[in-house]
Every structure is written in C-alpha cells, then in structure tokens.
Nucleic acid binder design. Structure first.
Lengths: 160, 160
DNA sequence: TATTGTTATACTCTATAACTATA
DNA sequence: TATAGTTATAGAGTATAACAATA
C-alpha cells in the first residue's frame, strides 16, 4: 500500500468522465419512468425545438446514421408522442412533429431535468453551481462541443 | 424561435454528462493506440494497485458479473499484459498479475492520461483546474461515487 | 443520378444460466 | 452445499449495405 493514489486517476478529466457517466445514468433512471431512453429524450427535444424537420437533417445533426433515426422515430411514434407528416414540398420527406401527448411528456421531462440537476448538485451552493457551470461551459466551448447535443449519440465508427 | 434555450438543457447536469462523454471518448481514442479499451485500462490499474487479486473480487469491486471479467482478462492475457497465476492457498482462484510488458503499458498509459488531462482542460488556468477538480470531487463524494471506479463498468440491470 | 427513408443483416458489448473444479 | 472460474447463449444497441420511391 502506497499512501494514496494507488490506482491513479483523480484529476479533473477522470472526475469528469466518472461524474458524467453517473449523471447520465441517473438521468436514464428518471426518464425510464416515462418509458423513455436518453436518446428518445434528445430526439423529442430536437423535434420540439424545430418542428417539421426531416429525419435526414436530424441524423446529420446528431451524427448518427439515418437508419438509426428510423428506429428511434418508430419507437416514439408507436408511443404516439411523435408523428410523421407528409411534406407538401418534397414527398420523400417526413416532417416530424410532436403530438399533444408528446408535448405533455416534454413538459414532464423538463421538471424531471430540474429535479435531476438539483439532486446532482446537492453538495454545492447556488453560487458554486453557477461557478461550476461556467467552468464547464468554457471547457465545452474550447473543446468544440455542440450545445445541447450529447456526444453519446454520435457514430463513433466514423470519427472524423 | 424563442430567444435562447430552444432545446432546453444547459445547466451543470447536462454539461457534466456531455463533457463526461466527450472526455471518455477522447480517452478511448488515445488508449486505442495502445490496443486497449477503457475497460482494459481500468482493469490494468486495478491489478497494478493490488497484484494477486482474484477475478471474483475484481468483479465485485467493478460491479460486473464474473463472466465479464473472464472476457476482459482473456483479452489482456492474449496481449501478454496480464497473467493468471495459480493460487497456493485455494486452487479455485487465479491470482492476477501484470507482466513486464503490462507494467510498461501502464507507464505509457499514465503519460497518456496526463496529456489527456492537459488537453481537456486547456481552456482553464492551473488555479481554475484545481477549483474545478475540487467542486467535482465534492459532488462525487456527496453522490457516493467510488474513487477511481468508472460507473460505466457497472451492471445496470441490477441497479440496487 | 442523387436523395430520403426503409429493411435486412451483422457486429459488439454485456448479462444470464448452466457447468466444472475445487472447497 | 457453496464458491471461483468458465462456456454457451441471448439480448440490446447500433452500424452497414441494399433497396424503393421520389427528386
């Protein structure tokens, strides 16, 4: 037994990965009560923010392959949270929209997200939380992360 | 278009999940050059810190099922980084040890981890980095995370 | 010919369950 | 009877490739 640091990592990078996985996992548990997975949540948000988008454009923004969007949308359509509407201008497109039930789920999701945030940051004061958010935001900006897009969606087999 | 926050999350929790996934992904890219995956790295570290451990005890600490440890160790043994030695006291056990090559890889891993950390926190000053690490550490403690263990290893189908 | 969405398929990761050998 | 490790199997998630309809 050396005094400490036996196994190695305790710098910011490892803590970030560790806490990030923990946060994602806790969030997944919470939204599971709504019958949703984290990818479902991301997709609902994306559709809500820009209704009528095509699957292709979503696939591009998310960095995933179009066939994956098919599966995700199939899933949400089966739950009647999302609908594919025919596009007037290009009949190849499906315009994606939230249903009324979808809007409601989105609202419940927002309160879940707030509770999640509070629970996760329970160790910190309000000041410290915004201090943390600001430090994290600067890292995110410098690392070129796309706002609101979780990298977990990305296709890692085509990393460039 | 509302003024901002169209898609929703930009609090500390989402940033944490986003940056955590990003950090994990970048780290995975780096260790891939050593022919290793992140779980491999965690296992190597764990064996290095307590040589001679059994697979069962590692499975318990990592929160995974023993058969998964079999696969991970198989992989590292095939690369001749780890060896299973028979235990003198209980012939059911395999005592896990690093080979010389394993020790060397571990050293290279440490310098990779340092470079990773520097790169990830490039946006912050030295002071800010330790400020960040301290905030993160307090959250990790309060959330009950086990030091040095990435939650990604855990068996999520048995969450309690 | 190029593009959108779909289907069919395969691959990777990981857990479950049954099994062997020790204890 | 219980435990350490193993094998065989199955499931979830996701990519690839071939395809139909439309542009």
């Amino acid at each position: 037994m050396t005094s400490r640091r036996q196994a190695g990592p305790s710098g910011a990078a490892f803590l970030l990965a560790q806490l990030g996985a923990h946060a994602a996992e806790r969030f997944a548990q919470r939204v599971k009560e709504l019958g949703l997975t984290p990818p479902d949540v991301g997709l609902l948000r994306m559709i809500a923010s820009q209704p009528g988008r095509s699957q292709r454009s979503i696939a591009t923004d998310l960095g995933v392959v179009p066939s994956r969007v098919v599966a995700l949308v199939d899933n949400l359509e089966r739950k009647e949270l999302v609908e594919r509407r025919p596009s007037a201008t290009d009949r190849r497109h499906h315009a994606l929209h939230l249903t009324t039930a979808g809007e409601q789920v989105l609202m419940r999701m927002r309160s879940i997200a707030t509770a999640h945030e509070d629970d996760l940051c329970a160790a910190l004061s309000t000041d410290e939380r915004s201090q943390l958010a600001s430090l994290l935001q600067r890292i995110a900006d410098q690392q070129g992360l796309v706002p609101h897009v979780h990298p977990g969606y990305r296709n890692l087999s085509t990393p460039r």
